[in-house]
Amino acid sequence: MKFKTLFFPALAMGAIVLLSNILVQFTINDWLTWGAFSYPVAYLVTDVCNRILGPSAARRIVLVGFVVGLASSTVLASLQITLASGSAFLVSQLLDVSVFNRLRQRSWWQAPFIGSCLASVIDTAIFFKIAFANSELNWLSLAAGDLSVKLIMAALLLPAYRAVIRKSGLLPAPKSA
């Protein structure tokens, strides 16, 4: 696959991961960080790449996000947060690619929605368990809030997914009445 084909998805993934690693440091309240709103867009990028370019390209985009995430986390966060973020990102994104690929023949919304939801559960569990192990912080409420927003975002991002796929020609336009 040509570098040019993967450049913009890789750039988008890197930017989303960097932004999310910054925003996760700022809490909105006792159960939510700003990163919960930006991070689900990474699943959108992965799912669009998977649908248009295939699972191999989607995995390459995930690796770009992983490298950017590790690099930015080492500058922005502690080693424990870096390990938590990198582990959660890699496992959950690769899970999303696999689930999406298994469901790709179903209705247009099932693969991205189910893949993103399952990956969000795994991402949240891995990140918060590693990031706040041996911490006095009540991380369960943060994890619950974070997961709730990720699941809502999975639904809210479906129209964007559909629009991009339709523009690519892989999803036909709705028939006029």
Rank of each mutant, 00 (worst) to 15 (best):
M1P: 03
F3P: 09
L6F: 06
F8W: 15
L11W: 02
G14R: 00
I16K: 02
I16E: 07
L19G: 05
I22N: 04
F26R: 11
I28D: 04
N29M: 10
N29V: 11
W31A: 14
T33N: 12
S38V: 04
Y43N: 00
L44P: 03
V45R: 00
V45C: 06
N50R: 10
P55C: 08
R60E: 10
R60C: 05
V62Q: 06
L63Q: 05
G65E: 01
V67C: 12
V67W: 02
G69F: 00
L70V: 15
S73E: 01
L76H: 08
L76K: 02
L79N: 14
T82M: 12
A84G: 13
G86F: 03
G86K: 06
F89G: 04
F89Q: 00
S92M: 11
L94K: 04
D96N: 14
V97D: 02
S98Q: 13
V99T: 09
N101H: 14
R102T: 07
R102V: 10
R104E: 11
R104L: 08
Q105K: 12
Q110I: 13
P112V: 02
G115T: 00
C117T: 12
I126D: 10
I126F: 09
S135N: 11
S135P: 09
L137F: 15
S141Y: 09
A143I: 10
A144G: 13
L147T: 08
L147P: 03
L147H: 01
A154W: 00
A155N: 08
L157N: 05
L157A: 06
L158F: 09
A163N: 09
G169M: 12
L170K: 14
L171K: 07
P174L: 15
P174G: 12
S176H: 13
A177Q: 13
